[in-house]
């Protein structure tokens, strides 16, 4: 399958390893990954902060970059960006764009998937041939869980990973407190939510906390790093891309280095 990869602005700039892993995984599964070079950002931050005029060119850019009918599916290693494309682009296009943009958005949103959806629903695989011999706990991010309704797809993918010790995260479906600009505008409340999430993550004794969104992982990882916890964060794609031939090496933590 010819699959368009949207790196997301955050993934491209700050968390390239998650995007690399997505590209590697899909290539290993025999698909042709294309990266439209003019892609930038889906505009989610703008819309969620209350700005709907400013992201019109971003919505247009996304539709132009991925509208190419030879691209059979669009994938992104982010539930919230996929949610933005599927639920918000239309609102922006209809309100501040034009009919042509609305049509383009309709075409592209129908073939846009978050990684676990693409793997399970479109490509029909749950065992991707991964090997990851560590204790892992999975945090279902809010937008993948309640906006995209990915359900247990990520967990089914993780269960099939060879060597993994998958442990359940208590109160898994609770928000980690990120919420984009919420974490800055309401930093105190966000921190209180994060403290509970970090406590639950640590209670699992996991080496790795994983999720389908680099943004939420940046938040949880930022909290774990601040208290010098031994648990790291890795994107779901990084675990699924890890094999015996090309294993994913765990990033060192300060706790491990001590």
């Amino acid at each position: 399958m010819r699959i368009g990869l949207f790196a997301t602005c955050l993934g491209d700039t700050l968390f390239p390893d998650a995007v690399k892993a997505t590209a590697v995984l899909l290539t290993r599964l025999g698909h042709h990954v294309v990266f439209p070079p003019e892609q930038t950002c889906c505009g989610q931050m703008h819309v969620n902060t209350g700005y709907q005029r400013e992201p019109v060119p971003l919505v247009r850019g996304f539709a132009e970059q991925f509208g190419d009918p030879s691209i059979e599916a669009v994938v992104m290693p982010s539930g919230s960006c996929a949610g933005s494309v599927r639920h918000q682009h239309r609102i922006v296009a209809e309100r501040y764009g034009d009919a042509a943009l609305a049509d383009a958005v309709t075409a592209v949103e129908a073939k846009t998937y978050e990684l676990s959806e693409l793997l399970v629903d479109v490509l029909g695989v749950t065992d991707v041939g991964a090997w990851f011999p560590y204790r892992v706990t999975y945090h279902p991010t809010c937008h993948s869980l309640r906006m995209l309704r990915v359900g247990d797809k990520p967990l089914r993918l993780l269960h099939a990973v060879d060597g993994i010790d998958l442990v359940e995260l208590p109160e898994a479906d609770a928000c980690c407190g990120f919420g984009g600009t919420f974490a800055v505008k309401n930093a105190d409340t966000s921190t209180a939510m994060l403290q509970d999430k970090v406590r639950d993550v640590l209670s699992t004794g996991a080496d790795v906390c994983t999720a389908g969104d680099s943004s939420c992982l940046m938040h949880i990882g930022g909290g774990l790093s601040r208290i010098k916890a031994g648990t790291r964060t890795l994107h779901l794609a990084q675990i699924l891309a890890s094999t015996r031939t090309s294993p994913c090496t765990l990033p060192e933590t300060e706790a491990a280095a001590r």
């Binding site: 700039t13 390893d17 974490a183 800055v184 105190d188 990882g221 909290g223 790093s225």
Partner: peptide
């Protein structure tokens, strides 16, 4: 400010050596 609320309780990772598109 206005990002100090973030770093009151959370670290930010250093930007990587290469962006994804440069790596690709």
């Amino acid at each position: 400010a206005p990002f100090d609320g973030w770093t009151d309780s959370r670290d930010v990772p250093a930007p990587p050596r290469r962006t994804f598109r440069d790596w690709l």
